[in-house]
Amino acid sequence: MVKSGTIILNTAARFLMPLQLMFSVFLLLRGHDEPGGGFIAGLVAAGGFTLYLLAFGVRATKQVLRMVDPRDLIGVGLLLGMVSVVPAWFMDQPFLTAQWWTIPVIDFKASTPLIFDIGVYLAVLGSVIGMVMALMEVDKDEP
């Protein structure tokens, strides 16, 4: 199934993937105020990787991912989601109450919802590329 694609696909994938990744981070960070957010950003990033997978195959994609296994991304994502509930405990507030901190120098709003959204992002990204990668790996093994 997965042969290397055409030159156009290859070139497009090579350029689009980093762009899509950057765009996804942009979508993630602005998601609280404008359309975007963890789910959408995760899907955009997963789309970028899927394109790359289709163009260059599983091995090349794994090289791009280096040490990161998609399954680890799922785990880290879920962990971040769980961790974001903890600060409210220390503030003696009900479970999952959002906490906000302003980082002074760059005037950036850090918050538990943001941590949570990053968790969503990683879980979605990990799930989708995990599934696609597993499918393509199996395809490769079969005639």
Binding site: F39, L43, V124, V128, M131
Partner: peptide, 17 residues
């Protein structure tokens, strides 16, 4: 619906496989 769309995709993938 937003979460439902994403989950539907996950479930569909599961069913297909």
């Amino acid at each position: 619906v937003l979460t439902a769309i994403v989950i539907a995709f996950g479930v569909l993938a599961f069913a297909v496989v």
